[in-house]
Simulated assay, not measured.
Amino acid sequence: MLHPHWLETFVALAETGSFTRAADKRSLTQAAVSQHVRQLEQALGPLLIRRPRGIELTPAGHALLGYCAEMEQAGHRLQCWLSDTEPTRGELTLITPGSIGLALYPLLLDLQAAHPGLRVRHRFGPDSEVLESVLSRSAELGLMTYRPEDARLAASAFVEEPLELVLPRGAVADCWEDLVALGFIDHPDGQAMATRLLSRHFPGNPGVGGLPQHGYVNQIGLILEPVARGLGFTVLPRYARQAFAQAEAVRATECAVPVMDTLWFVHRAEWSLTARAEHAMAYLRERMPGALAAGL
């Protein structure tokens, strides 16, 4: 096992380039610095070349220095996880689907701007990635479009989001033939979303697979670009349309029987949430239009 004191001495030696200066920095004797380096080299092989005007790290020495940096970062992350008593300091990790993420991210930036000690790490991902990230604890909080059945996860309803049939401004979709004339702009969830919504909007329709496809986009913020240019229609969750920069160039049609998805906050059930995560959840519930009451 590599003793932490040996590693701290090696980092000081690499940073100062001198046994004398490393000894001063660590409040040790030069003999102690040499002994620490010798213990490391017995375990790992030659770590440095001693020259008249200083030292030079070997490849193994550079590798060990990188390892020390990773250990320091891991220790910092551990402190962030453990320092959960301050709701507005430390790192908040969150992963969400793209549509709701577009709506939440500006709110999270507002929260961070109000509390400089808070660091927000927000990733976009599909439900499968949200599930994996929360289970592996690479993200403390996630949002999913369904309530997971995994007993390791706790879930609470956050907000409802309808699917929308989105057309170019001025286009009509009174019948299936209108959609055929427009063409479909597909995306990673496009076929599934369109099937769910259009089966209610146009009962008995021939199926989404028979629509001419006029484009495919896998970036949530860009899916409506071709729609805005009149190149076709698509089906998306409402928050994606509301976040679109050219919202005036598209329009959503009303569906007599809407398709509504409930979005769920999820986290590991075995461990208490940090104060940061609790605060962020309450903050988002207060500021997100239509958010559901906690505990549902």
Rank of each mutant, 00 (worst) to 15 (best):
L57G: 01
A32S: 13
G232K: 10
W271A: 15
F184G: 03
G61F: 00
H187G: 06
L273V: 05
E132D: 13
A243Y: 02
S133L: 09
V208H: 01
E177S: 05
Q219R: 15
L92F: 10
R38A: 09
L104W: 09
I220Y: 12
H122G: 10
A14T: 02
G210E: 10
F202G: 02
V257A: 15
A282C: 07
V130A: 12
V259A: 09
I95F: 05
R137V: 11
V159G: 03
P168N: 05
E278T: 15
A14Y: 01
L131T: 12
M260P: 02
V235S: 07
I220M: 14
L64I: 04
C175Y: 01
P258K: 11
E8T: 11
E248P: 09
E70L: 08
R123L: 12
V266E: 05
A171E: 07
I185H: 11
H267S: 14
V259E: 14
Q30R: 15
P148V: 06
D261K: 09
F184W: 14
V134Y: 05
Q191N: 08
P59D: 03
M1Y: 12
T96Q: 06
Y146I: 02
P126V: 02
E161L: 07
F19A: 13
F202W: 06
Q112E: 15
T93W: 11
V250P: 02
T93Y: 12
E72N: 12
A240N: 08
L109N: 08
C68T: 14
R53A: 11
E225L: 09
Q73N: 10
L292H: 08
L92Y: 11
H62V: 00
Y239S: 14
R77T: 12
L47K: 00
E15W: 07
N205H: 14
R89I: 05
G125F: 06
L165I: 03
E248I: 07
A294W: 06
A151P: 08
R152V: 02
L153H: 07
S18W: 10
F19Y: 12
E91H: 15
L153C: 07
D174H: 10
Q42F: 00
A43G: 05
A60T: 00
A291K: 04
I95W: 08
R38M: 03
L131N: 08
A157D: 00
L13P: 00
D189K: 10
Q213Y: 07
L64W: 05
D110A: 12
A240Q: 14
R276P: 11
R169A: 15
P116E: 08
R51D: 01
M1L: 12
S272T: 15
Q242D: 13
A171P: 04
C68D: 10
E149Y: 11
C255N: 13
T145V: 01
L163V: 07
G75S: 09
R38C: 04
Q191D: 06
R26S: 03
G90E: 04
G204V: 05
T234M: 03
E160P: 09
P258Y: 09
E15R: 15
E161G: 06
